[in-house]
Amino acid sequence: MNQNLYNYILGVADNSLILGQRLGSLTGHGPSLETDIACTNISLDLFGQVRSYYQYAAKIAGDKRTEDDIAMLRKEREYVNVLLVEQPNTDFAYTMARQFLFDVYHHLFLTQLEKSKDLTLSAIAKKSIKEVSYHQRFSTDWIKRLGDGTEVSHQKTQEAIDSLWTYTDELFHQTEADKAMVAEGIGVDVTALKETYYKKVDEILNEATLQTPESKWFQKGGKQGIHTEHLGYLLSDLQYMQRTYPNMEW
């Protein structure tokens, strides 16, 4: 099998999986029914993307593994999502800040992935880009509301942005699989997205009357499978059924 392509797909898909899982756990607990429904929609979009990616990965792997095996039966060090998406739902400011910081990246990323030589990836990107375009609109609007809303919301949102900022740089790190796939015209050169990303984020934070953090200290490791402590708990939930009742159909 094409190990680089397989790893590359996981690198893309795991972000959606973990973020979808985070959002999914909020269903029923949102600040209003309308917001609850909206966040669940985003979660559903992400899981839809995840399924397409993993089904493709399973095909490439060519063994007996299914989308669910790939999603739920890897060990903690084998998940290669960025640290940003596994950060907890501390409050609605964190949830929206995490979403916003990821959506801006995700949209830029998919716009490039759509040009991939790999037709399956290109097709998934083409479909996903419309969804993510909406996610970005939704989270951007909320960042503006919260940033430029009340004193309380401003302060909470600034805190969330400040504390999640440290996970943004990792979005633009290249793994070995990335490099190999970029060379083949399949993968996206994420380093090239960095400037546009920070410019765009800065513009929106500005409009939201929030400060763009100046810190240059960044965390990384997710792409190498070295995660924050939060991921383990998320995985215990995600994997619970598959681990407790192995080799069964549901």
Partner: peptide, 11 residues
């Protein structure tokens, strides 16, 4: 959710 709803109204 109260502070969130308030923020949206203020905005």
């Amino acid at each position: 959710g109260e502070w969130v709803r308030d923020a949206a109204m203020a905005y």
